[in-house]
Every structure is written in C-alpha cells, then in structure tokens.
Computed example of a mutant assay.
Amino acid sequence: MMVPTVDAAGVADDAYLLDVREPDEWAAGHPPGAHHVPMMQIPTRADEVPTDRDVVVVCRVGGRSAQVVAYLKQRGFDNVYNLDGGMFAWAAAGRPVVGEDGSAGHVI
C-alpha cells in the first residue's frame, strides 16, 4: 500500500498533528498543538483520530508514522498523511518545536 505523505512545508495550519513517538521524545519537543498518542496505543485510541480534516502523523524520521498511516488507512481513514522525514524534517524546515512546558524544544 502506498502511504500518502506531506512535507513539513506543506502541512496546513489547521491539520490535526498526531505525534506517535514515545513519551520522552514528545517531552523533548513536538509541534505546538500536536496530539500525542504513542504508536502502540493507536489500536485502542483510533477513535480519537478525527475524520473531518487532514491528519498528519508524525514520528522522528517517518518510519513509525508510516506504519500508523497504513494501519489507519486499512481501517477506513482516507484523511491521513505521513510527515515525510518526521520531526527532523519539521525542525529543519523551520517549523516550531516546543517542549512539554511550552519552552523551545528539540528533537531527540
């Protein structure tokens, strides 16, 4: 299955960002306004993923998020996209990264 992707510059401001990284990665730095659901919790929390707007799935470099996009597509979601290059590409594109306390974050 082809996994649809979007690059960091192409993520719409109103997209729902779903960060599937581990808690320590999330705490170090994530996109402002993103929603955190670790990858292994997706099967039990898929009902939290909206169907009424674009959902961009995020991990560190794009591998885990691609698996989550494929999983969600198999379950009928047609609005999910993988963030190409993950958080490293997001930060490299100059998109904002915040830590758990709202201060400037970094990608680990």
Rank of each mutant, 00 (worst) to 15 (best):
M1K: 09
M1A: 15
M2N: 13
P4E: 07
V6G: 01
V6K: 13
V6R: 13
V6P: 01
D7R: 11
D7N: 15
D7S: 14
A8W: 03
G10Q: 12
V11Q: 03
D14K: 08
A15H: 09
Y16M: 02
L17M: 13
L18P: 04
D19F: 04
R21N: 09
E22Q: 15
P23N: 03
P23C: 04
W26K: 06
G29W: 12
H30V: 06
H30N: 05
H35M: 01
P38H: 10
M39V: 12
M39W: 06
T44P: 00
R45G: 00
R45W: 02
A46Y: 01
D47R: 09
P50K: 07
P50R: 11
D54V: 10
D54R: 14
V55N: 02
C59T: 10
V61W: 01
G62R: 10
G63E: 11
G63S: 14
R64W: 06
S65F: 09
S65A: 12
Q67P: 00
Y71G: 04
Y71V: 10
G76S: 08
F77L: 13
D78K: 14
D78S: 15
N79R: 09
V80Y: 09
N82E: 10
L83V: 10
D84V: 00
D84P: 00
F88C: 00
F88V: 13
W90Y: 07
W90G: 06
A92D: 15
G94M: 11
V97K: 07
V98H: 08
G99Y: 06
D101L: 08
D101C: 08
G102V: 12
A104T: 15
G105F: 13
V107Y: 07
I108F: 01
